Amino acid sequence: MEIVRHYSEVMDIVDRLFVTIFGTLNKTCQKELEAVGRQYPFEPLKYLPEALRRTFLKVFKCLSYAGVEVDPMGDLNTETEKKLGQLVLEKYGTDLYILYRYPLGVRPFYTMPCDDNTA
């Protein structure tokens, strides 16, 4: 995919894609979802018309307020990601969110820093 102006274009497409896929599945595959749910009980996915977007810094602060220790220049481990998902669901009522602006130190070497934030 070509990025014309800003990487947020990719987030826009991913956002629309997920909402379309989940919306279509919920509408057209109700019987199948019920059959799967009988064998493997699950909570229906909760999502907003537009995916919640949060920067790594905001997520770091949110986790810190919740008493979770996170390295501000590090990556999130599985336990921390699960806690973040729980906090997002409680606060915003959605399972689907996009986390962006990771610290440069945990991103692959080929990614470019943001012009307004090189951390």
Rank of each mutant, 00 (worst) to 15 (best):
V88C: 03
P113S: 08
L52M: 06
T118G: 09
T78D: 11
N117C: 15
E43K: 01
E2Q: 13
V88G: 01
I21H: 09
E90Y: 03
E2D: 10
L57G: 06
R5Q: 13
K46G: 00
E9M: 07
T80Q: 15
C62E: 15
Y65V: 04
P108C: 08
F60E: 03
K83T: 07
E50T: 07
P103R: 06
K46N: 07
N77Q: 06
E79Y: 09
E43H: 05
F18I: 00
F18P: 00
F109M: 10
P72L: 06
E2T: 11
E2A: 11
E32A: 07
G74I: 01
D71H: 05
L87C: 07
Q86H: 08
F42Y: 13
T78M: 10
L104H: 11
G93A: 10
P103E: 01
K46I: 01
C114T: 10
D71I: 02
Y92N: 05
R101I: 07
L33E: 03
Y65T: 10
V68N: 07
P41Y: 03
T118M: 14
Y102N: 05
Y102G: 00
M112T: 14
F60G: 00
A35T: 12
D75I: 05
Q86F: 12
G93R: 01
V106R: 13
M112C: 14
V68F: 10
I21Y: 02
E50A: 12
D116P: 05
V36G: 07
V68C: 08
P49G: 00
Y40A: 09
P41Q: 06
Q86Y: 09
I98K: 02
G74E: 06
L96Q: 03
E43Y: 06
V4H: 11
P72D: 06
E2K: 13
S64H: 09
A66I: 08
F18V: 03
V10I: 14
I98W: 09
K58H: 12
C29S: 09
Q39M: 11
G85D: 00
N26W: 03
Q30S: 07
V88T: 01
E90F: 04
Y92D: 05
R101Q: 14
S8K: 14
L96R: 01
Y65Q: 11
L96A: 01
T24N: 13
S8V: 06
F22L: 12
L87D: 02
I3Y: 12
E2L: 13
G93C: 02
V36C: 12
D95C: 02
T20F: 13
R16L: 08
M1H: 12
E81H: 08
Y97E: 01
E32Y: 04
L52G: 02
V106G: 06
F22S: 03
M73V: 06
L25C: 08
R5K: 15
V14I: 14
V14M: 09
R16K: 15
G67I: 02
V4G: 07
T20N: 15
Y110A: 11
F18A: 04
R5N: 15
S8G: 11
D71L: 03
D12T: 04
E9G: 04
M73R: 15
E43A: 09
Y92G: 00
R38V: 03
R101N: 09
Y97W: 05
P113H: 14
D95G: 00
L104V: 08
P108R: 14
F109Q: 12
R5E: 14
L17V: 09
L52C: 02
E81D: 08
F42K: 10
C62Y: 04
N26T: 07
Y110P: 07
K27R: 14
F22N: 08
K91E: 11
